[in-house]
Each structure stands twice: as C-alpha cells, then as structure tokens.
C-alpha cells in the first residue's frame, strides 16, 4: 500500500518533467533535424537529401561565418575569464566582509538587464556623435568626430560586456568556498604568488571556471543583438544567417540545417571543454 502510493507519486512527479523535456526539447529538435534533411524539388514536394548541408559546405560565406562566430566566441570567453577572474577573486577573498557583499550585489543587480539595453548603451557611447567621441574632441585628442562602432573591436567589447557577469557570479561562489588556510599553506611551503595561483587557487576554482566558460560561450555563440547592433550590416554572425534563412528568405529547410550545425558546433566545444578539464555538466553548470 505504502509502496504503491510512493510509486504513484513518483509517476505523478515525473509527468511534468517528461512532458517538458519530450514536447518542448526532444521532439522539436528531432523535427528540426528531419526538416534540415529535406529538399524542395517542386512546390509542396520534398525528398530526403543532404542538399542543405552540401550547400553549407559549398558556400564559403556560410562556413566562414560559422568559423568566425566560433572563434570570436572563444576569444570572448577567454577575455571574460581573464578580466573577470581577478574581480571575482577580489570580491571573494580580498575585500572585507561588507565591501564583499556590496560588490557582489553590484554584480547581481545588473545581471538581468537585457542585451538590448546594454547594446543601446554602447551605441550611445561609441557612435560618431557619441559620448566617447565627444569627450575625446573636448580634450583635444581628436580633431573631428570619429566612429567607434561597426567594427570587430566594438562587437568584442560589447559581447564581453554582455556576458562577463555570468562568468564572475559562478567564480565568486566557487572561490568563496575555498579555505583561506589552503592559500596560507601554499605560501608557507615556499610558493610565490604565481605558484599558489596555479597550483592551489585555479584547481580549486575549476568547476566555477568551467561553468562560467560554458555559459559565456553558449551565450556569445547564440547571441544575436550585440553583434548586429554593434557590428552593423557586415557583422557576419551565424545566428543572423539563421534568422535570414528563416524569416527573410522563408527557407526553413536550410535554416533548420544551420540551426543544427550551430547546435552541433557549440555542443562539440562544450563537450571538449568538459573532457579537457575533467568536469561534468552536473558538477559545473548545475552548481552555479
């Protein structure tokens, strides 16, 4: 009797989970892959073929865009880690108790400000009539207005800006759990600052580093607004290609193929990252 009730409640609890994963995640992705394998041979007539993927391979613009998106995303991830780690370490270990809470709060409060507003802020700062150009003219460094938007540097700065808090927050949580005596022991055993960082702090912070890197990489590779608004027409971002195929050209088959390629590419990078660092999804992303 008791056992039956337990079983029943387990099944009841499993239902929403199964519905969510099957209907909203699994089936749509299967459907997307099937669609990507179809070729239109006449109006309303389709046949299975690799046509959409072959087109991707044959058209350098497409795979160049994917490679570009991937490499810029990796660069942004590395930059976010390099810039964010010292800030996270300061918040978790150097700052006094009060400052620490205050600074962490300063990271948490703007966490959910939309990409759109962030990009808009950068536009107002960097464009020809913007604040940076104005300030530089006022100080006499620039003779005439200068455009800082619509180049790769602007896109990279904007992307790092958009995602860096998603790097810092998990890092702070991980480093915060580290016992100070571990660091002291490292110094007492004769290690210098660099050795302690490399042998003690970084290994300890690894789950946080990997979690931050995964989330940041996925957010960057999948971002749409920041590259388009800050990079302009020629930003060549892969999500833009997907949008173009789906909405502008109404070529869903090819759009689905592009979507699958982006998913496969990002999953591969995340999988490699997990393998190389010896972590798993549940030990990293789930903890942050």
């Amino acid at each position: 009797m008791q056992k039956d009730i337990k079983r029943l409640s387990l099944i009841l609890l499993f239902m929403p989970f199964a519905l969510w994963i099957v209907v909203l995640i699994a089936l749509p992705h299967v459907g997307m892959v099937i669609l990507s394998l179809q070729e239109k041979i006449a109006p309303r007539v389709y046949q299975y073929s690799l046509h959409n993927y072959i087109e991707f391979v044959n058209e350098p613009i497409y795979w160049n865009t994917l490679l570009r998106t991937g490499s810029i995303s990796l660069l942004v991830t590395v930059l976010a880690l390099l810039i964010g780690f010292p800030v996270a370490y300061y918040i978790a270990k150097i700052a006094g108790f009060r400052t620490r809470n205050g600074l962490f709060l300063l990271c948490l409060i703007p966490l959910w400000v939309s990409d759109l507003i962030r990009a808009f802020g950068w536009i107002l700062l960097l464009r020809e009539t913007g604040i940076v150009s104005g300030l530089l003219q006022w100080t006499g460094i620039l003779g005439s207005p200068m455009e800082f938007l619509y180049n790769d540097a602007a896109v990279i700065v904007g992307l790092v800006y958009t995602v860096i808090l998603f790097m810092i927050v998990p890092l702070v949580s991980t480093i915060d759990g580290m016992d100070n005596s571990m660091i002291e022991a490292g110094y007492n055993l004769g290690g210098n600052g660099f050795t302690v960082l490399r042998k003690i702090i970084i290994p300890y912070a690894m789950p946080g580093i990997v979690a931050g890197c995964i989330v940041v990489f996925m957010l960057t590779a999948g971002s749409y607004l920041t590259p388009i608004l800050l990079g302009g027409k020629n930003s060549s971002w892969f999500t833009e290609q997907i949008y173009d195929q789906f909405i502008t050209r109404y070529n869903w088959e090819s759009g689905a193929a592009f979507g699958f390629l982006l998913l496969a590419f990002t999953s591969l990078v995340v999988w490699l990252g997990l393998k190389l660092s010896g972590q798993s999804l549940s030990s990293t992303v789930a903890k942050s």
């Binding site: 749509p28 989330v215 869903w252 995340v270 999804l281």
Partner: peptide, 22 residues
C-alpha cells in the same frame, strides 16, 4: 538530471526555431 540541465546550454535561437518548426 543531465537532460534537465541541457536546455540551459542550448542557444536560445535554436530553441526558438525548433519549437516554431514543431
């Protein structure tokens, strides 16, 4: 449990198109 975490690491654009297609 891994399946439960997975949606967080799928790019939002892909989630959007797959549900649209479905």
């Amino acid at each position: 449990y891994i399946l439960m975490i997975l949606p967080l690491v799928i790019p939002g654009v892909i989630l959007g198109i797959s549900i649209l297609v479905f």
